[in-house]
Amino acid sequence: MKETVLVTGGAGFIGSHLARELLDHDYRVRILDNLTPQVHPDGTPPAYVPPGAELIVGDVRDRETVARALQGVDLVCHLAAAVGVGQSMYEIERYTSINNLGTAVLLEALAQADVRRVLVASSMSLYGEGLARDGDRLVEPEERPIEQLKAGQWELRTPDGRVLEPVPTPETKRPSLSSIYALGKYDQERMTLIFGRAYGREAVALRFFNVYGPDQALSNPYTGVLAIFGSRFLNDRPPMLFEDGGQRRDFVHVRDVARACRLALESPRAPGQAINVASGESRSVLDVAQALARATGKTHLTPHVVGKYRAGDIRHCFADITLARDLLGFEPRVPFEEGIAELAEWLAGQIAVDRVEQANEELSRRGLVA
């Protein structure tokens, strides 16, 4: 038996897959999760939490609970967070409390604990508009002007109007924080790496791109885009796409993400680094919606392209995964077509409450959709 790992947020989508990955590689696993109703509507542990993991139900902001959860722990994977760009723009206090304060409480407790390495889940959202090419020159695009977005001109442009070509984004790209969620994830990342340096602990941040796969929270309208599309299809409704659906993203299967986390706990070259975890491929959101429609037999549900902009959204961002390959020995193993087929098979046995239109109405009411 290897070391004991604490996974905060371990009853969630990524956390439960990580717990299973760790158990399969002979780690002891303890989970700390508050079973938030937005993810777990009935407040009970989901069936997909692996039975070999010890579960502590509690909040990462509660000092006593965190101290108890850290007893006898060798390694920590900090995944507990409020997730969702759109919702973060109006539930500012809640997102800041869970993500920023929760990480601060954990790190203060870690200063008193005998934990060797801590991994924190960061996000591609901190890259903003990613990296782009203007002719022969690489550029870091600014946020698109609101006037341009209101005019329905979605692509990234130079100040004189030339369209920029999106390219894979490496870790060297400077942060460009377009949402409260992105700001919080950047804070979580930097706090953890600063803590590691100051206290002589091994700390690593993994910047997750668009993670998908079975066990996503289908009734949470602020979760990953493929889960939202799945919820719509299960209710025989067309997926809703902001802008024109041409936004390009990097979709990585959750089992690949779980494996990357384990490798980051084991690699001697990971500490002190912030590393992209992704597939290294890009796809438009419209292409992804159509792929899931084919896999679920819902091709009659033509995607509804809203032609509107949502505050905090970015146009294109997909990953350069060279660093993950070099430092972790990470290589994505689940092809997109295989992952989509598996997701469709899982969806066939699920029931989802579709809250997408309600969430969009809430954003519109607050002036966060243009």
Rank of each mutant, 00 (worst) to 15 (best):
R137V: 11
L193G: 01
Y181N: 08
L177D: 09
R174E: 13
A151Q: 10
A182R: 08
K150L: 14
G135H: 03
A182Q: 13
D187I: 05
R174Y: 07
P145M: 10
Q153N: 00
R133I: 03
K173P: 00
M191V: 02
M191N: 11
S179W: 11
R137D: 00
E155L: 15
E189V: 04
K185M: 15
E171F: 04
M191G: 01
P145R: 07
E142R: 15
P166H: 09
I194P: 00
Q188L: 09
E143H: 07
V139H: 07
I146L: 15
E140W: 06
E171D: 12
T158R: 01
E165Y: 02
L177R: 09
A151Y: 03
A182C: 11
R144S: 11
G184T: 15
A151S: 09
E165A: 08
I194M: 13
E165F: 04
E143K: 08
D136M: 02
M191I: 08
I180G: 01
D187F: 06
G184C: 14
L164Q: 01
E143M: 07
T172I: 05
L156A: 06
E147P: 00
E142K: 15
S179H: 05
E147V: 05
P168N: 02
P170L: 04
Q188D: 14
Y186E: 15
E165P: 00
Q153Y: 00
P141I: 13
Y181M: 10
G184K: 02
L164Y: 01
G135P: 00
A182S: 14
K185E: 15
E147R: 11
A151F: 03
R190L: 12
L183E: 14
M191A: 12
P168E: 09
K150A: 14
L193I: 06
R133P: 07
S179V: 06
P170H: 04
P166N: 10
E171Q: 09
I180S: 03
Y186S: 14
Q188H: 06
P166M: 10
T158E: 02
L183R: 14
D160W: 08
T172D: 12
S176W: 06
R174W: 07
R144G: 02
L183W: 09
V139R: 09
T169P: 01
W154H: 05
E189Y: 04
G184V: 08
G152Q: 06
G152T: 01
T192F: 01
A151N: 02
V139K: 08
R137T: 12
T169S: 06
Q148N: 10
L164I: 00
S178V: 14
E165V: 11
V167S: 05
E140H: 06
P166R: 10
D134T: 01
S178I: 14
E143T: 03
Y181A: 11
P168W: 05
G152K: 05
K173T: 15
T158K: 02
R133L: 15
A151W: 02
S176K: 12
R137S: 04
P159I: 11
D136C: 01
R144K: 13
V139Y: 12
R157C: 10
L138R: 13
E147I: 01
P168L: 05
L193Y: 09
